[in-house]
Amino acid sequence: MSIQHFRVALIPFFAAFCLPVFAHPETLVKVKDAEDQLGARVGYIELDLNSGKILESFRPEERFPMMSTFKVLLCGAVLSRVDAGQEQLGRRIHYSQNDLVEYSPVTEKHLTDGMTVRELCSAAITMSDNTAANLLLTTIGGPKELTAFLHNMGDHVTRLDRWEPELNEAIPNDERDTTMPAAMATTLRKLLTGELLTLASRQQLIDWMEADKVAGPLLRSALPAGWFIADKSGAGERGSRGIIAALGPDGKPSRIVVIYTTGSQATMDERNRQIAEIGASLIKHW
């Protein structure tokens, strides 16, 4: 067993022997301040990774656009098919120029040779490549099948209805392509620590998230040296922004954090800054 596999296998073990965790309302004060600064709703939840206990939450059962955070769930569904012998990570998928959609920095470079399922998941999570996500959605049967996968996990809230990039439209009061912070946090925890996926697939999923290259201005910008984070960000229309993450000190994750916002007129930089400040408060009061 590799060191990384050992780390993920012992996530519940280490967490069980940690000192009790206590909620700190100071972080919620910052979440509410972010709402004021952005002029928009902000949803927040913080779960203990081992027990699933909610440590703090704000608007945990209000719907927010998922945006690209759905790509972690998508690759979880792909990995479940791999575990069941219905898919192979090494299978190569070929596609054409007509398949390319807006923001496809990886797939646009491989029109000639195609990409493997493993490479597509890596591109979808680490670079948020939209064509990679659409190609992977095709392998599982489309958005409705991802929703069905989530329902089978016990998540009857999260739903995907459309493809990239239309799913980022974020129309107010439109339930399409949305989740709730509580539902997303619980589902992410199941994917990373539950028995739904094999140990190898859980490790692969967290490795992809740990290698995320496009979430630097968010929670990662607030992390002290030595902290662990595996995350996936999302951005959408109407001032929408979000991030889902597993993080913790001492090089291992111990909490799940989900943050979503929508309806702001603020710039992307300002949305990023507010999420980073929430992260800084979380870490300060850990």
Rank of each mutant, 00 (worst) to 15 (best):
H24M: 11
E26A: 12
T27A: 13
L28W: 06
L28M: 08
V29M: 14
V31M: 09
K32S: 11
D33S: 07
D36K: 15
D36L: 13
R41M: 13
Y44M: 06
Y44I: 06
I45Y: 15
L47G: 03
D48L: 05
D48Q: 05
L55S: 11
L55E: 06
S57H: 09
R59H: 15
E62W: 07
R63L: 11
F64W: 04
F64N: 01
P65F: 04
T69S: 11
K71L: 00
L74F: 02
C75H: 01
V82T: 11
E87Y: 15
L89I: 14
L89Y: 14
R92F: 11
I93V: 07
I93N: 03
H94M: 07
H94C: 09
Y95E: 02
Y95I: 08
S96D: 08
S96N: 11
N98K: 08
D99K: 09
L100R: 05
V101A: 11
Y103Q: 05
S104Y: 04
P105E: 11
P105M: 07
V106D: 15
E108G: 15
E108A: 15
T112L: 13
T112M: 13
G114V: 03
T116H: 04
V117K: 03
R118I: 13
R118Q: 14
L120E: 00
C121T: 03
A123V: 10
I125A: 04
S128F: 00
T131K: 02
A132F: 01
T138A: 12
I140M: 07
G141A: 12
P143T: 14
P143M: 05
L146F: 06
L146Q: 05
T147V: 07
L150C: 14
G154R: 13
D155F: 01
T158Y: 00
R159D: 03
R159T: 14
P165F: 05
N168M: 04
E169A: 13
E169N: 09
I171D: 15
I171T: 15
I171P: 15
I171S: 14
N173H: 11
N173F: 11
E175M: 12
R176L: 09
D177A: 02
P181Y: 02
P181E: 02
A183N: 14
A185D: 00
T187G: 10
L188Y: 07
K190M: 14
L191D: 03
L191E: 02
L191F: 09
G194W: 08
G194F: 09
G194S: 10
L196H: 12
A200I: 11
S201T: 10
Q203R: 06
Q203L: 06
E210V: 12
A211K: 15
V214R: 13
V214G: 12
A215F: 02
P217H: 09
L218E: 02
L223H: 03
G226V: 04
I229V: 14
A230Y: 02
D231Y: 04
D231C: 05
D231R: 03
D231W: 03
K232C: 01
A235S: 07
G236N: 10
G236Y: 02
E237N: 11
G239R: 02
G239Q: 03
S240D: 08
R241K: 15
G242K: 02
I243L: 11
G248C: 01
P249N: 08
G251S: 13
K252M: 10
K252D: 15
P253L: 06
R255H: 11
R255E: 04
I256Q: 01
V258N: 01
I259C: 10
T262M: 11
G263M: 10
G263E: 13
S264E: 05
T267M: 12
E270S: 14
A276E: 06
E277W: 06
E277C: 06
L282R: 01
L282A: 12
I283H: 15
I283C: 15
K284W: 10
H285W: 09
